[in-house]
Simulated assay, not measured.
Amino acid sequence: MSDSMIIYNDDAYTKINELISAGIIVNHIITDPPYNISKNNNFSTMKKPRTGVDFGLWDRGKFDLFSWIPLYTKLLDKNGSIIIFCSYRFLSYIADVLEGEESNCEVKDILIWQKSNPMPRNINRRYVQDMEFAIWAVKKNSKWVFNKTVSKPYLRSLYTAPVVNGAEKVGHPTQKSLSVMKEIISIHTNENQLILDPFMGSGTTGVACKELNRKFIGIEKDNNYFEMAKRRLEV
Rank of each mutant, 00 (worst) to 15 (best):
E106M: 15
K139D: 06
D64N: 13
M46Y: 15
V207Y: 03
I30A: 03
L111D: 07
Q129C: 07
N79A: 07
Y13R: 14
L57S: 13
I112V: 15
F63H: 09
N40L: 12
D130K: 09
R121Q: 12
F216R: 10
D77M: 05
N79S: 11
P153S: 11
S157N: 14
Q129I: 13
V164Y: 04
V150E: 11
E101S: 14
S87M: 11
E132A: 03
V145Q: 15
V235E: 15
N122Q: 15
M131K: 09
L76V: 05
P49D: 00
V164G: 02
F90G: 04
I20C: 08
L91R: 05
R126P: 01
L233V: 01
I94V: 15
K230N: 02
N104W: 05
N224E: 15
S186W: 02
G171R: 04
P70E: 02
E220T: 07
I217A: 11
K221V: 10
M46F: 15
D54E: 06
F66D: 00
I7Y: 06
G61S: 12
C105I: 11
D54S: 00
L65G: 00
N17F: 13
K47E: 14
N147P: 08
K215W: 08
I135K: 05
V180M: 08
K143Y: 15
N124R: 12
G61T: 12
I20F: 08
N104T: 01
P198V: 13
P34R: 03
M228C: 02
S44Y: 14
T160C: 12
L98P: 09
P70F: 01
T204W: 09
A229G: 09
F66I: 09
I24F: 08
S116V: 03
I217K: 10
K230P: 01
M1D: 08
N9Y: 00
N104P: 01
T160A: 12
N124L: 13
F85W: 14
P70W: 03
I25F: 07
K230S: 01
V53C: 06
A95N: 09
N122E: 14
I6F: 00
N223P: 07
G80T: 01
F55L: 06
K140R: 14
K143L: 14
V53F: 12
C209W: 02
W113G: 11
L178Q: 14
G206N: 01
Y72W: 04
S2G: 09
I69Q: 02
K15V: 03
L57Y: 07
S4N: 10
I30Q: 06
T174E: 03
W136Y: 14
G201I: 04
G80Y: 10
N213C: 11
K176R: 15
I24C: 06
W58N: 09
L194R: 00
K139E: 04
H172L: 08
S67Y: 07
G56N: 05
D54N: 13
D3F: 09
K140S: 04
L233G: 00
N104H: 08
W58K: 08
G206Y: 02
N27W: 05
I94W: 03
D54G: 00
D10V: 00
I219Y: 10
P198A: 13
I69L: 03
G23D: 06
W68P: 05
V145R: 15
H188A: 07
E227W: 01
D197V: 08
F133D: 05
A95G: 08
I110V: 14
N79Q: 04
D10A: 00
T160P: 00
D59Y: 12
N192L: 09
E234A: 06
W68N: 07
I110A: 03
S87W: 10
